[in-house]
């Protein structure tokens, strides 16, 4: 594979994590504009662990997930009372605060005679773990898609398990969930934390492939994109958000000949798509029909027939 294709595939994989993170929150009924904060925390934390303190990536990754997960759970606990737009804006405010604090912060240590560490808007550079250990982009490709495979497997198991049904019930009707014996508070915080950790995986890979990350990488554009992915691809299954990333990153790469007009074309495409499919391509109904077809059951979608 040539390097360009590998880079594109790596980007698709990396952004899939944050798209899944936003999707998980959508399932629980919350719109977050702030998942880029946890992507950024994951990138910075993992980069600092490997570049400043010489840890292995495989230790830095779970640590970064832990840091981002705890931060996300804390934000989740603080914003528990907020719903809908209020929640969305609160997460946005948090994410922008984090990004701007990174712009305002410089903290460097001496590694082999060079200063290494976050340096305001100059970003965090010298994340050389991949380079030092002779990892080529194609090695990262396997790492990313391996992790993505595991995450997807967990998603499918979750969707079929009690946890998945609880999250979906909370997302669909909070009061109903309460009258069914679900402790909504506890699950909201759990889901927020899991979503934060999920975004951090993407951030950690991103940092170690780019080797330098800047606060501006984690601006609101990333957050809204990750939310859009789920809505474009569909809210019926975890494959939806990944399909959304594929369409965006894949589409933008494929039509390079309209370079310069890509956003106009893509923006228009998304706007038109949402008119006809407001819950995305793979929405609940289409996923349900697909499942029935796979199981060879006759789809009875029009329940109005007599019984």
């Amino acid at each position: 594979m040539d390097d360009h294709v590998i880079t594109v595939l790596n980007n698709i994989g990396g952004f899939s994590f944050i798209a899944l993170s936003a999707y998980l929150l959508l399932l629980s009924g919350e719109i977050s504009f702030g998942q880029q904060a946890f992507f950024g925390i994951g990138a910075y934390a993992s980069g600092m662990f490997t570049a400043m303190f010489g840890l292995s990536f495989w230790i830095a990754l779970p640590l970064a997930m832990l840091v981002a997960g705890l931060a996300a759970a804390a934000v989740g606990a603080l914003t528990l009372r907020l719903r809908g737009l209020y929640f969305a804006i609160a997460t946005l405010a948090f994410a922008e605060t984090i990004r701007l604090i990174l712009v305002a912060t410089t903290w460097q240590v001496d590694v082999d005679g060079e200063p290494v560490g976050p340096n305001g808007s100059e970003g965090l550079g010298n994340i050389r773990w991949g380079f030092d250990n002779e990892y080529a982009p194609v090695d990262f490709l396997w790492m990313i898609y391996g992790s993505l495979g595991i995450v997807l497997l967990l998603f499918f198991l979750m969707e079929r398990s009690r946890l998945g049904s609880i999250v979906r019930t909370i997302g669909a009707d909070r009061l109903l969930a309460e009258t069914q014996g679900i402790n909504v508070t506890r699950y909201k915080i759990l889901v927020a934390g899991l979503a934060g950790a999920l975004a951090a995986i993407g951030g950690a890979f991103y940092a170690h492939i780019q080797t330098t990350v800047y606060p501006e990488n984690f601006d609101v554009m990333l957050g809204v994109h990750s939310l859009a992915y789920g809505l474009i691809g569909g809210l019926g299954t975890a494959v939806g958000p990944i399909l959304g990333v594929l369409l965006d990153v894949g589409f933008l790469e494929a039509v390079e000949w309209i370079q310069g007009y890509r956003m106009i074309a893509f923006g228009g495409l998304v706007a038109v798509l949402l008119i006809f499919m407001p819950r995305g391509i793979l929405d609940e109904r289409r996923v349900h029909l697909l499942r029935l077809m796979l199981r060879g059951r006759r789809p009875d979608i029009h329940g109005a027939a007599g019984h």
Partner: peptide
């Protein structure tokens, strides 16, 4: 017309994402 009138009621999130898509259009335009 594009993001609010054309998208049916009840799909508030779709409208929002659609307005974001149009944002990218306007900015690039």
């Amino acid at each position: 017309r594009l993001c609010f009138w054309a998208i049916k009621k009840g799909a508030a999130v779709a409208s929002m994402v659609s307005s974001f898509a149009v944002w990218m259009q306007l900015e690039e335009g």
